[in-house]
């Protein structure tokens, strides 16, 4: 509990620093904000590792564990992307997203419970880790799409004058995350086959992971299709950004919303569906 609070504090300071940096642009804040972010990230790492040791299994077995791990993944992917593409203001938003996840985690039941036998598998670890890395990248691409849309609506121009092309950046981030999403989907199928003898059973969770994957697949094909359709060239990035926002809604639904499905009671693996 203490660690999670200090981590939250670090992320709050980091997000303030990120925003101040964008407004006043002193060089020192750029380094400082990143440094504070890294402190928060390390604390988040402590949270995950500690949990792993305490429970004796990879910490993804309930909502609390998966949320702190998702928060960690967002931090991890953000640092990689920051290194690759220098995300600037996206840093502030990613920090807010991590804070939100940690706050959410702190309201959920954190009791350690024994793992059911099907979950005691290395495939599970690979499956979940790849999925969350993917989800983290897609989460950040969601943020960049939002930035694109906000900025587009404000300036009413498609590209000119913008500090950076967030739509292009979004595509790159999805391109980074989509392979992880695919690996997650496939390792999930392999694991199911190992545990139950069926690689695919159209369980709601499986089906929704497939839907999510298909939506991102659609997005990846939009550059091939949209230019050939009868739409204003300037509108294409807007359509793509909207597509990404909707796609992330599917991720969130797959991750957290399935308990609300009428078919949820038939499912084996939905959080909050004991």
């Amino acid at each position: 509990m203490v660690t999670i609070n200090i981590a939250l504090l670090a992320f709050i300071i980091a997000s303030i620093a990120y925003i101040m940096k964008e407004v006043w642009k002193p060089e020192i804040l750029r380094k400082a904000s990143l440094a504070i972010f890294i402190v928060g990230f390390l604390l988040n790492t402590v949270l995950v590792v500690n949990r792993w040791i305490e429970s004796g299994h990879a910490p993804f077995s309930n909502l609390y564990e998966s949320l702190i791990f998702y928060a960690w993944s967002v931090g991890f992917v953000y640092l990689i992307l920051e290194y690759l593409y220098s995300l600037r203001i996206v840093g502030a938003l990613s920090t807010v997203m991590i804070m939100f996840l940690l706050l959410y985690a702190s309201t959920t039941d954190e009791t350690i419970r024994p793992l059911m036998p099907a979950l005691q598998s290395n495939w599970l670890t690979v499956h979940v880790v790849t999925y969350f890395i993917g989800y983290a990248a897609l989460g950040i691409s969601f943020l960049t799409s939002i930035l694109y849309l906000v900025w587009h609506l404000r300036s009413r121009t498609s590209l000119a004058g913008g500090p950076m092309d967030f739509q292009k950046l979004s595509y790159k981030i999805v391109a980074f995350g989509f392979p992880f999403l695919t690996l997650g989907l496939i390792t999930g199928a392999v694991w199911a086959n190992k545990a139950w003898g069926t690689y695919w059973s159209w369980d709601p969770k499986e089906t929704w992971s497939l839907i999510t994957w298909l939506i991102y697949l659609l997005y990846l094909h939009t550059p091939l299709v949209l230019p050939r359709m009868n739409i204003d060239k300037a509108k294409i990035p807007v359509v793509q950004s909207v597509c990404l926002v909707a796609a992330f809604a599917a991720v969130i639904f797959t991750y957290l919303g399935l308990a609300y499905l009428p078919s949820a009671s038939d499912s084996e693996h939905i959080y909050g569906n004991k």
Partner: peptide
Amino acid sequence: CGLGTFIVQ
């Protein structure tokens, strides 16, 4: 697929 989860099967 979406329909297949919103309508119980």
